[in-house]
Amino acid sequence: MQHRSKLTRWKERGSLRFPFFLLMKGVDLIRTERSRRTLAFYLMVSPWVVVFAFFGLYPLFYGLYLSFTNFIGFNIDRLRLVGLQNYKNVFSDTDAIYSLGRTIYIAIVYVPIGTAVGLLLALLLNRSIRGMGIYRTIFYLPSIVPLVSVGLMFRFLYADKDGIINTILKFFHLPALNWLGYDYATLSLVIMLVWGAGGGILINLAGLKGISRDYYEASSIDGASSFQKFFRITLPLMTPVIFFNLIMGFIGALQMYIQPILLTGTRLLDPPIRPNYFYAVHAFQQVFAFQRFAYGMALLWIMFVVILLLTILIFTTSRYWVHYETDQEG
C-alpha cells in the first residue's frame, strides 16, 4: 500500500521524474539473487515479447478493430464504425457459408486419412530391416518439398487428357478423367495432400519408440497376435500422438489456402475451382481481389472462433479416447 502511494506521489510530481523512479526501482530489484534471476529471465524473453507484441498482438487486435469499420483499402483516414455489420454480412454471404462448409468437409475427409496414413507409414518404418534409413528418407521427402513445387507437379500429373495420370489410365483402357474439373477437383486435392502425409512420420516414430518393449514381450508370452498387439498396445499408447496430429491437422486444414490455388491457378488472386473454394481463399479474395479489408477481417475472426470451438470439441472428447501413461500410473 505504501509502495503504491509512493508510486502515485512520484507520478504526481511530474512526468520527468517518473522514468527516474522506474530506473531506481529497477536498480533496487537487482540487488538480490532472486531479483537478478528475474531480471535475467525478462531480459532474455524481452526480444520475443517485444516482437510478439508489435508484430503479433498489435496487428491481431488492429485487425479486430478494422473488422468493425468500413475499411476498403483507401479510406483509412475516414474510417467509420459499422458495428457488427461485417459479421452479419458473413452469415448472409452464400460464398462464405459455402466455403466454410467445403473447408469443414475437406478437414473431415483429409485429416483422419492423413493421420492414419502417417501412422501406418510410421509403423512400417519402425521395423528393423536393412536400408530403413533410405525408406524413412524417401517417405519423409514429400514433406520437405516446397508447396509451390508440389502444386505444379500435381498440376502436370492431373493436366488435361494427355496428362501423366490420364495417359496411364488410357494405357489400361480406362476412361480419362478431368481431374481438375468440377467433379474430381476435391479428390485430386485430397490425393495431393495425402501424398504429403509423411510429415507426421517423425512424431509418430518418436511416439512408437517411446512404447516400452516390455508390453510387447509380455503380450507375446500371453499369445497375443500382431493385430491384438496393435489394437491393445500400440494404438492406445499412441493416442496422445494421434490426438496432437489431429489437432494440428484440423487447424491446418481449416486454414488451407494455397494448395487449391496452386492446383488450378497461375496467380495468387486466381480463385480455385468452386468445389475447392475454401474459407481462407474466400477471405483472401475479399481482402486482396475486392479490397474488402474490414469484411475480410470479420471473416478471419469468425474462422478463429470456429477453429477454437472445434479444438475445444476435440479436447473435450479426448478424455474418452486418449490414454496417458502417466495418468494411468497416477
Partner: peptide, 18 residues
Amino acid sequence: MKKKGYLLLGLIMAVGLT
C-alpha cells in the same frame, strides 16, 4: 514480487523501444 516483475518488464520494453 509479481508487481516488481511487471515493472521490470515495462522498463525493459521501454528501453528496447527507445
